[in-house]
Design a binder for these strands. Structure first.
Lengths: 220, 220
DNA sequence: ATTATCTATAGATCTATAGATAATGC
DNA sequence: ATTATCTATAGATCTATAGATAATGC
């Protein structure tokens, strides 16, 4: 039996913060901001309650830290994917390609990632439909710049569409995605098992096919 | 000044229950089940806290009562609308018509109704994406039978589609609707005011147009 | 006599902090 | 010396109920 290894302060810090963030992410995703206590989170993370306040200041601060943890990774993956597609497709850029370039990275992170990434997506889904007051007043604006880039690409794929069209299109698309991230099991129950809400690869295809069919052009 | 009118017990009961349900609906929609206290609700309803327990037993019981209040009205309106459409359209039944027959009634209730109806829709939206544990364990199954009827009509409009196709279609549609009921103001901010998330009449049109364009037929 | 409403409070829980202790840092 | 962790607790708040009072019912 080896002697207990000496851990540096930054190691201890990282480990504790990571445990707290993982536990908070899972519990917030499961029960919402107000459905979980700091004590619950500390218990799940196997640290003391006071340590949560030591590192994150307040419960709201912890919530914000959870939300912000993977945002840069998701944003970067989307930006890279859209840039790569725009480059390869050139003038042949189309709606299906743009949709796939935007949607695929986040789905890939959820599919390839572990529970943590999936809890994160579920949490983002809830925050997306909740009024700010329900979730510690956290507005999710971290993804906004990437959405602007996505809208710009959509415009290239459908030059005749108005900006209003494009934003409504995004509104409906984001709703469909939110529903999928949430993984409530509702469609499993309704369909009698034909569809599985955790089959993200399938959902990605369904989403692309449905939304790629839209003319995105103002009716008379 | 007239003498204080004598109110019957059933009147007093209805008034108090109604005030409590209205207040609960508004506050739950704004802050979620766990973001609101019974005291908050009683205060907004201008009744005593203990009256809430007298009429609804528990906070969870009140939440369930709120959810169930308008469900029959929404269900009945949808069933009537779909039956009427199936009758008039006959063999000429198409996807756009089916979508409109299913979607229009709930939108109409929200558009023609007051704040209460709109708060209700917002609450349904949140419950739809929340795991059961986040919302007093309330699963929304009240609408399930009507969804089955909708799926059956969809099948008539797209006979070649598989049941799996139809359920995925419903999954994505319900996400879009949920996002719209939630009225988060997000699309208003993103679009710089071009789109308004409380313009339900417009959203109904956008939703019908987008989803009616889908071939709903298995790809190769 | 029954139903609706109010008063008062039990008992649990929650967020947050002050201050002590135990590690690592250098 | 500084940073991480633990102990103990303040002070607020929360759900729920027991029991009293004030209405209506008949």
């Amino acid at each position: 039996m080896p002697a207990a290894r000496r851990r540096s302060n930054s190691e201890r810090r990282d480990v504790s913060q990571g445990r707290i963030l993982d536990a908070a992410e899972a519990l917030f995703a499961q029960s919402g901001f107000n459905g979980v206590s700091v004590k619950d989170i500390a218990g799940a993370a196997e640290v003391d309650t006071s340590l949560v306040h030591y590192y994150f200041g307040s419960k709201a601060g912890l919530f914000t830290a959870v939300i912000q943890r993977y945002a840069p990774r998701v944003n970067q993956a989307r930006m890279d994917s859209m840039a790569a597609y725009a480059r390869t497709a050139g003038a042949g850029l189309d709606l299906e390609g743009v949709l796939r370039a935007y949607l695929e990275p986040a789905f890939r992170i959820a599919i390839d990632g572990g529970e943590s990434e999936q809890n994160y997506m579920r949490l983002i889904a809830q925050v997306s439909v909740a009024p700010p007051s329900a979730m510690a007043g956290v507005q999710v604006t971290a993804f906004d710049p990437v959405i602007e880039a996505f809208i710009a690409l959509l415009h290239q794929a459908r030059p005749a569409a108005t900006r209003t069209d494009l934003y409504w299109f995004y509104h409906l698309l984001s709703g469909a995605i939110t529903q999928s991230w949430a993984r409530t099991g509702r469609i499993d129950r309704l369909s009698g098992g034909l569809c599985r809400s955790d089959d993200l690869a399938q959902i990605l295809e369904e989403t692309v096919q449905l939304f790629a069919g839209y003319p995105l052009k103002r009716r008379a």
